[in-house]
């Protein structure tokens, strides 16, 4: 007989916890404010269930989105103690350690999207970007032929987009994005992820058009590699791999002709090949040209030179020790890469 179930009942721990909830109804409020709700919470309760309790028992006007309540639909993205996550998969008791004020959980709407009411923000700008960057497959199968036969897709190809298709568009990454916060036209991590997923799909035919859009201003080169998107992704998707993937592909397909981003990236490669060291002083004009550099950076450059932070031109950078052997290794690796590409093309 199996005995771990013993007759004892499941013990419930309970304590009073305060939820400090962001409130804003643009119809009546001039500016947002916070309401505190203190409710008894037992172990095992999620933030969403606590909000439901508040709505049903304390204040029915608190407004938030929720649907599946199981972490798959992505409706209840919000910031709990400052970090964007899904309310339905966040345990209240685990958040207690993260409270800035003991026992007070702060609940706020996602950032970087227009507020609608309380914890609800407008998702339309995200959908508009998905449309702008053609986040769909434009199939190589003519419509009249569809349903007749399946494409053959290798496991290798499937694995390229497998993780990316985990995305539930909860917009946590959008909320946490550094660059989107700095400029609302920025493509945003979720849309880069979806774009990548489409670009590596062999069934798609508009890879080049999509890529051409992605390398424009506010596109893939504007990402600042802060990794916040990836770190807060509720599905643990390596979003930066997708962003790097698009960049790698852009350099491969389009070279450095497009944007400063591509030139900037290539400069690293060039410098390392030559000296093993980055020649930082010349990066600005190699990235953006002499004119831009003079216009934008001259006053600062003067200050920098006066403080001896940067030498007067031409910059002297001492190559790394043992550079000769290194250069040879580097060149040989270039041959390897060429071979790889050739065998890949075959």
């Amino acid at each position: 007989m199996h005995m771990t179930g013993a007759a004892e009942q499941h013990k419930e721990e309970k304590r009073d916890i305060t939820f400090r909830v962001f409130r804003f109804n643009p119809q009546v409020d001039i500016k947002p404010y916070f309401d505190d709700y203190t409710i008894p919470v037992e172990r095992g309760i999620t933030v969403l269930r606590a909000l439901n309790y508040i709505k049903e028992h304390v204040d029915p006007t608190v407004s938030f989105r929720a649907f599946c309540q199981a972490g798959i639909c992505g409706s209840c993205g919000m910031r709990v103690n400052g970090i964007s996550k899904l309310a339905c998969t966040t345990q209240v008791w685990e958040e207690l350690d993260r409270c800035k004020e003991p026992g007070i959980l702060k609940v706020e709407p996602l950032r970087n999207m227009p507020p609608i009411k309380d914890l609800i923000v407008d998702m339309d700008p995200l959908v508009d970007k998905m449309k702008h960057y053609m986040n769909w497959i434009d199939s190589s199968m003519p419509e009249s032929e569809m349903g007749k036969k399946e494409f053959l897709v290798s496991e290798d190809e499937f694995l390229k987009y497998d993780k990316a298709t985990d995305c539930i568009l909860c917009a946590s990454c959008v909320s946490e994005c550094t660059i989107l916060r700095a400029h609302k036209e920025y493509v945003s991590p979720a849309v880069l992820l979806k774009s990548y997923r489409m670009n590596v799909d062999s069934r798609d035919t508009i890879h080049d058009t999509r890529l051409a859009e992605l390398v424009k201003d506010h596109g893939v080169w504007d990402c600042t590699h802060c990794y916040r998107c990836q770190e807060t992704c509720v599905k643990s998707i390596p979003i930066m791999d997708a962003i790097h993937g698009i960049r790698e592909n852009a350099l491969e397909v389009r070279g450095t002709k497009d944007t400063s981003g591509a030139k900037h990236a290539e400069a690293f490669m060039d410098d390392i090949a030559k000296k093993g060291k980055l020649v930082e002083a010349t990066l600005p004009f190699r990235t953006n040209g002499v004119l831009w550099t003079v216009k934008n950076l001259l006053p600062m450059a003067v200050k920098m030179i006066m403080k001896r932070r940067t030498p007067p031109p031409p910059p002297m950078v001492k190559p790394s020790k043992g550079i000769k052997a290194f250069r040879e290794e580097f060149r040989e690796m270039t041959e390897h890469v060429k071979d790889d590409q050739q065998s890949h093309n075959k």
Binding site: W136, I137, S139, M141, E145, M146, G147, K148, K149, E150, F151, L152, V153, S154, E155, F158, Y161, D162, T165, M198, D201, R203, D204
Partner: peptide, 22 residues
């Protein structure tokens, strides 16, 4: 079968067998 293939044709990421079929 038609509907599953059509979904494949428009980009559904079906898992694959060793012979690359759905």
């Amino acid at each position: 079968p038609k509907i599953i293939r059509e979904l494949d044709n428009i980009g559904t990421p079906w898992s694959r067998l060793d012979d690359n079929t759905i």
